[in-house]
Simulated scan of single mutants.
Amino acid sequence: MPITTLRGLALLGLREGQEMSLINSNGVEEKILLEKVEYQPEAARREREALGREERTPAPRPILYVVSGGLDRRHGLGSNPTNGFYDPGPPAA
């Protein structure tokens, strides 16, 4: 069931045997019971790792680093003009 539906969204975070109540688009209360989880990819991966059947891969390194004010210091854009209006323009976006 896709999580883009109200029922699918209600199932997120539930464990087997847990129940959730929601009000549908017609204003009627529905109770949803999660009877069984057929397959959980993340749990299956952890189980394979525990059994030694799958090697752990290192977490990917981030490809983007945010440096606060990095360009301002390098290019001398850090000071405001004397009239008090500062618009860094498109490069700031």
Rank of each mutant, 00 (worst) to 15 (best):
E29P: 05
E35G: 07
E47G: 03
V67Q: 11
G17P: 03
L11W: 00
S68G: 12
L33Y: 11
E29M: 07
D72H: 09
K31N: 14
K31R: 15
A43C: 02
A44S: 11
L71T: 06
I23S: 07
R61C: 02
P60I: 00
Q40G: 09
L12N: 09
E47I: 05
R45E: 13
I63A: 12
R46T: 05
N24Q: 06
L34Y: 00
I63N: 14
R56T: 08
S68M: 14
D72P: 01
T5I: 05
L14T: 00
V28R: 14
G70E: 12
S79K: 12
K36A: 02
A50Y: 05
G13Q: 02
E29A: 07
G27V: 01
I23D: 08
E35C: 07
E42V: 12
R46D: 08
R7Y: 11
P58T: 04
A59P: 02
K36N: 07
R61E: 09
R61L: 14
E49M: 12
A59L: 14
R56M: 05
L14H: 00
V37A: 10
R7G: 10
G76D: 03
S21P: 04
R45W: 04
I63K: 15
P62I: 01
S25M: 14
L9R: 13
M20H: 15
V37L: 13
Q18G: 04
P41M: 05
E47T: 09
K36H: 10
T4K: 15
V67E: 11
D72W: 09
E47W: 09
P41K: 06
R61I: 05
N24C: 04
M20T: 09
G27C: 03
P60C: 01
T5C: 10
A43G: 08
E38T: 10
S68A: 15
E55S: 10
V67F: 10
T4Y: 11
E54G: 01
Y65P: 01
L14M: 10
A44N: 05
L34P: 00
R48Q: 13
R48T: 04
E55T: 12
Q18R: 10
R61G: 03
R48P: 00
